[in-house]
């Protein structure tokens, strides 16, 4: 009855575990790989094993890197008195793309979300406080997501850091560039009015 070889079903099962991939997509991907030239498949396999073997978590900023401290943390040209706190490694990439930020990062590994089982002690918050106490930090920028969990996390960190640092800031909230005032929702518009700036 089950004519599919075990080595094939095993890969299908492994693919199914990935986010956004169901059993159908998993089998499609598997059969695509079966028809792939040998060297391409080997290169994919090598990339996969390197991913786990060659990456480490930077012990300063907790970003994913090939060595610790990571390239950003080790870069003498960057401003080490400025820390930008983000939820995930992908947020670091987003901010790096702006080429505007010259400080260092701190990756929390998520936001406080008890529904998902994440409490403050599961994030790198204590490490951030230690880092601020240890180093000479002038400003901490809280760049968590502007949703309920991100805001609560930012408020919590602000309270933890208050005794130890001179300045804690939060990313501005307001209108997107290229947006249309008419189509902005009320909450965003309200925040934009609150956060207006003198020209």
């Amino acid at each position: 009855m089950n004519s599919i070889p075990p080595s094939v079903t095993r890969l299908i099962d492994e693919f199914s575990r990935l986010p956004g991939i169901g059993p159908k997509t998993a089998s499609r991907l598997t059969y695509y790989l079966l028809r792939m030239p040998d060297e391409q498949a080997k290169s994919l396999a090598a990339a996969l094993s390197d991913l786990k073997e060659k990456t480490v978590t930077c012990q300063v900023c907790f970003n994913i890197a090939e060595r610790s401290p990571c390239a950003t943390c080790a870069d003498e040209a960057r401003d080490h008195s400025l820390i930008c706190v983000v939820e995930e490694p992908l947020d670091v990439m987003a901010i790096e793309r702006t080429r505007e930020f010259k400080g260092t990062y701190h990756v929390l590994g998520g936001a406080i979300n008890p529904i998902e089982g994440i409490l403050p002690e599961d994030l790198k918050i204590a490490e951030l406080v230690a880092r601020v106490k240890r180093e000479d930090i002038h400003e901490v920028i809280l760049a968590t997501n502007p949703n309920l969990e991100g805001e609560s996390t930012a408020a919590y960190i602000q309270r933890q850091l208050a005794p130890h640092t001179r300045k804690v800031t939060r990313l501005a909230r307001g209108l997107p560039i290229g947006g249309d005032l008419e189509y902005a929702d009320e909450v965003t518009l309200m925040r934009a009015i609150e956060g207006r700036r003198e020209m």
């Binding site: 979300n113 409490l119 403050p120 002690e121």
Partner: peptide, 23 residues
């Protein structure tokens, strides 16, 4: 909902209660 879940997790694992007030 988040705060109630937070309370339940604190019941399970213990830990500092002051984090509860972040909500």
């Amino acid at each position: 909902l988040q705060r109630n879940q937070h309370l339940k997790r604190l019941q399970e694992r213990g830990g500092p209660a002051e984090s509860l007030h972040l909500w």
